[in-house]
């Protein structure tokens, strides 16, 4: 679920389309946008406090075969929440799990890893290498 939540709506839609005809499902909970209050910790590790809210969209679906899938994603992308819930439901179905892993989860995880690696490499280039000036009075 965390890979699906982290994916961009466009990337998730592409992965969803790769699965071909969507399975039959019923909507248990329509995609709904609401707020989650994000908490931080005093000093980073101390008691919690409320920092501010984020928009979150969630959705629950049930496949004809009975598996329920749900999603929680930052933002207000209803289609993304719906597609993530359907993918989550398919993942619960033993027959589909491997297909979901290879065709959806792995490619999306790879996109994320690549983006993270790019960011780390660009950031690493801004690391300060200190050197000490030689004193001239000896």
């Amino acid at each position: 679920m965390s890979v699906l939540a982290a994916a961009s709506p466009e990337d998730l839609a592409t992965a969803y389309d790769r699965l071909g005809t969507p399975p039959a499902y019923e909507m248990v909970r329509q995609p709904e946008t609401g707020l989650v209050m994000v908490r931080g910790r005093m000093g980073g590790t101390g008691s919690p406090f409320n920092l501010g809210e984020v928009t979150v969209t969630r959705c629950v679906v049930r496949l004809e075969s009975g598996e329920a899938g749900s999603s929680y994603c930052l933002g207000r992308h209803k289609q993304k929440a719906l597609q993530a819930a359907v993918i989550d439901a398919l993942w619960q179905r033993a027959d589909d799990r491997e297909r979901i892993e290879t065709e959806v989860v792995a490619p999306l995880a790879e996109i994320r890893t690549k983006a993270d690696e790019d960011l780390k490499a660009e950031t690493a280039a801004t690391k300060v290498d200190f050197f000490t000036m030689v004193r001239g009075d000896n």
Binding site: T33, M37, V38, R41, G44, E53, L119, T123
Partner: peptide
Amino acid sequence: RTTLPRFGYSQPIDTGKMLVE
């Protein structure tokens, strides 16, 4: 923000695990 329902509170974020920029 007053027009949206509140789902609840997050777990406290861990800045020690930040992807640092």
